[in-house]
């Protein structure tokens, strides 16, 4: 559908200058945090933290710098579409990679071998014999 006529005929900016500057400051603060976090050893959470911050930064850029918050639902839909389809691709590809070395449960069951991914075990104690 045709959206209502937007800014074209008005002569005022949609986002005030102060908001833009504040947004840039926020982005720099987030940059500082993400670099700082890299010097802490959080185990696997390093990646989680870094990606979370990247997502926040991207959201700030999209919503404020790219002014998507002033746009119509149709535009929101297409902004989301690109990312949603990327997510589909990553998910379905990883559906293969994350289960590839696994064997069908039937196989494990019948041959009496233990299931190889036992998350309840967690990280084995260093003293334990590493391999049998």
């Amino acid at each position: 559908m045709s959206a209502a006529p937007s800014t074209a005929s008005q002569h005022a900016a949609e986002t005030p200058r102060s908001t833009l500057v504040k947004n840039a400051v926020a982005l720099f603060v987030l940059l500082g945090i993400t670099v700082g976090a890299n010097f802490l050893d959080l185990g696997s959470f390093n990646v989680v933290v870094a990606l979370l911050i990247a997502l926040i930064k991207a959201a700030l850029i999209v919503l404020i710098f790219m002014e998507v918050r002033h746009r119509s639902p149709v535009l929101w839909m297409f902004v989301a579409a690109g990312f949603f389809w990327l997510l589909l691709m990553l998910m379905m590809t990883m559906a293969d990679y994350s289960t590839r070395s696994a064997l069908p449960p039937d196989w494990l069951h019948r041959t009496g071998r233990t299931n190889h991914v036992d998350f309840s075990v967690g990280r084995p104690a260093p003293a334990a014999p590493a391999s049998r």
């Binding site: 064997l103 190889h116 967690g122 334990a128 590493a130 391999s131």
Partner: peptide, 11 residues
């Protein structure tokens, strides 16, 4: 099952 560096276990 073999425990690996990083905590994963593989067959």
């Amino acid at each position: 099952p073999v425990p690996l560096e990083g905590g994963t276990i593989v067959t």
